[in-house]
């Protein structure tokens, strides 16, 4: 009974703060994306000839797999199908990583970033056991040209 109570409290805390943080983060992402929309981003392998040496740029973020999402995911896994919450979470994280890359490119005075690649890897305390937390790192890297 006590265990159930703790679980319920953790879930409610997770839902409330998680949802609030998500809304704030999406608003934050949209404004930063708009501010950096002048930078051209591609995953093409060839760079345009500019005469200046290119520069490697990276952006990364480590996100937590939270209690609430893991709880819901456990149920979805019984029947299969889309886990929309994870889709949203990974999408936000990837956008954040790309924005950090663009901010680095922007600081270097670049207007174009090519050959952008994304990497995903599990990190943290429980990387071996997907169902008990831990986190994941999303890395974006590319070449900025001046």
């Amino acid at each position: 009974m006590l265990g159930f109570g703790i679980s319920a409290i953790l879930l409610l805390v997770g839902v409330y703060f998680g949802t609030r943080a998500q809304k704030q983060h999406i608003a934050n992402l949209e404004s930063r994306e708009a501010a950096l929309s002048h930078i051209i981003v591609t995953n093409l392998k060839t760079l345009p000839a500019t005469g200046n040496p290119p520069q490697l740029v990276t952006g990364s973020v480590v996100i937590a797999f939270d209690y609430f999402r893991r709880f819901i995911a456990t149920f979805v896994m019984l029947v299969g199908g889309r886990i929309t919450m994870y889709e949203e979470m990974l999408d936000r994280a990837r956008r954040e990583a790309l924005l950090r890359l663009l901010e680095q490119a922007d600081a270097a005075g670049s207007r174009e970033v090519h050959n952008v690649r994304f990497e995903f890897s599990r990190v943290g305390s429980s990387s071996q056991k997907a169902n008990i937390g831990g986190g994941a790192e999303l890395l974006a890297y590319g070449t900025a040209v001046l």
Binding site: F17, A21, I63, F68, S125, G135
Partner: peptide, 23 residues
């Protein structure tokens, strides 16, 4: 801190910095 973040979700800033330094 990461354990606490595992309740509400969000970014694990400590880990982001750690991995950036390492990279």
């Amino acid at each position: 801190m990461a354990g606490l973040k595992n309740i509400v979700g969000g970014e694990l800033k400590g880990y982001t910095e750690l991995l950036e330094d390492a990279r």
